[in-house]
Amino acid sequence: MPSSFERPQGASRRSVLKAGLGAAAAIGGLAATGGAVKAMSGGSGKSAGLSGAVDPPVFKVADLTGPGLSDRFGMHSTDLGIPVDAGDRGKLFVFGDTFSGPRVGEGDWRSPTGLYSKTTDLNSGMKWDSAVGGDYGRQFWGYDHHPEQGNTVLPTDVIRIGDSLFLFVTCVQPFPNVLFSEIWRSDNNGESWDLVTPGIRADHLGGRFQMVTWGLGSNNTVYVYSTGFRGPGNARGILLQRVAADRIHDLGAYEGWGWDGNQWRWGVEPSPILDGKFGEMCLRPIDGQWILTFLNEDNPLIESIVMPTPDADLVHTNRRHILIANTAWGTEGGNRVAQPYGGFIIPGSTLRELHFCVSQWKTDGDDRGWPYRVMQFKALGLDAI
């Protein structure tokens, strides 16, 4: 990959790329708005009732990155940590903006990066065996970061299909201005990557195909939730599509779930299934059901919804729960985290014991820039509530 990208067809050729440091601080600087989550009456109506059930007990398991944890791989400061099964390498965790120094903006800047773990006891906390690139965490493909441009490539989700990994990324410059998105493929558990879907326009599906999560169903169909990239003015609402697993790279093969004027059905232009402003999302099949975790930017909170199928009603459900609540620095504890985002589910989780990655970034004060890390939490009893 050259050190600069081409814009999608129809735009001028010039060096473009990724998320900036000055404006990008907003990605972690989430201030509570107190706004309620707005909900549309979308969905298939396969579940009933209103949200408001008791939320699950949530506990911190471990810090996963930072000094003494990931710095030996040149990855002292990093975020996201999107996990996926990596075959004989164990689990691959994909990280976003990564710095070798002790704070955001210090040292060698890379994104995406990855760490491997063969930890099987999730309650012990993930331990790192190696990085993509060996002893030093290498950027997945080559391009140059320019702090004055604020250019970066940010991963939103990764999925395993057969022996291949597929990674969705969004290219921004500066944050939160999305230039375009891409899908990359790896056939060696993440050690090298090939571009398979270049130049997905920022306005595709009305700007709601910039932040993507996907899960593989037992019918060899991939279900895809998407929304606008987080930040001021992003397109509101989550869309649902599906695609045959062997055509995940072909946007022309995606089929939308939407309201046709009389009913919700497949094969129409996708309609928002949940209204609101959302950040990172994670859709996974677990224990014969499906779970979506997401950053609700309106509050902000990391929430979950358990559902029987991906096209279930996300609005009128009593299985929507708060996993992580935002709190002030110095008041953290239990499920209260200052400036949280992420929420990516770790393979091996069950609904009874759901392990997930939470990011944190301090963006104000004299000590801003640290913490900028990934932590592991677990929620108990989502199968019973």
Rank of each mutant, 00 (worst) to 15 (best):
H145I: 11
R284T: 04
P285M: 06
G228N: 07
G96P: 09
L21C: 07
F294L: 13
E6V: 03
G276V: 03
T170M: 10
I322F: 05
D287N: 14
V158I: 15
G207N: 03
S181N: 04
P272Q: 02
G207V: 00
G288W: 04
G162Q: 07
W214E: 13
G276Y: 02
V222L: 01
R14V: 11
S77D: 04
V37S: 15
L165A: 06
G10W: 13
F93P: 00
T98K: 03
T152W: 13
R320Y: 01
K91Y: 06
A39Q: 05
M281H: 09
N299W: 03
S192I: 12
A62Y: 01
D246V: 06
V153E: 06
R7Y: 10
F168E: 00
I322T: 14
H145Q: 11
S51A: 13
K91E: 05
H145F: 12
D71R: 08
V358S: 02
G342A: 14
K362G: 01
S100C: 06
S218G: 13
H321V: 05
W184C: 07
G68L: 07
N318Q: 14
E106G: 05
I82H: 02
Y341P: 00
S44F: 10
D88F: 10
G96Y: 11
A31G: 10
V84D: 01
E106Q: 15
P176A: 06
L195E: 10
I345Q: 01
R265F: 11
P57Y: 09
V178P: 02
R368L: 11
G133F: 04
G365F: 05
A36W: 13
E280D: 14
E332N: 11
K91G: 01
R201E: 04
C357F: 02
Q9E: 14
A19Q: 12
W141F: 15
R208E: 00
A26Y: 12
L115G: 01
V58S: 01
E332D: 12
M75V: 07
T221N: 07
G279N: 08
S111L: 07
S41C: 09
K362W: 02
Q376K: 06
V94A: 03
P300W: 03
L251C: 02
S164K: 15
L17R: 14
V374I: 02
G43K: 06
G276T: 07
T120Q: 14
N299M: 13
F95D: 05
L154G: 03
L179D: 09
A384D: 11
L354G: 02
R185M: 10
Q241L: 04
G288P: 08
R13N: 13
V268F: 08
G43E: 09
M1V: 09
S218K: 15
M281C: 11
Q263H: 09
A384M: 08
V104E: 12
Q9I: 14
V16G: 12
T293L: 08
V172P: 06
R284S: 02
I183E: 04
R7A: 08
Y116L: 06
C171T: 15
A11C: 04
A31K: 14
W361L: 05
P310I: 07
R319G: 07
F140A: 05
V169D: 12
L64D: 04
H204Y: 15
F5K: 02
T152A: 14
S226W: 00
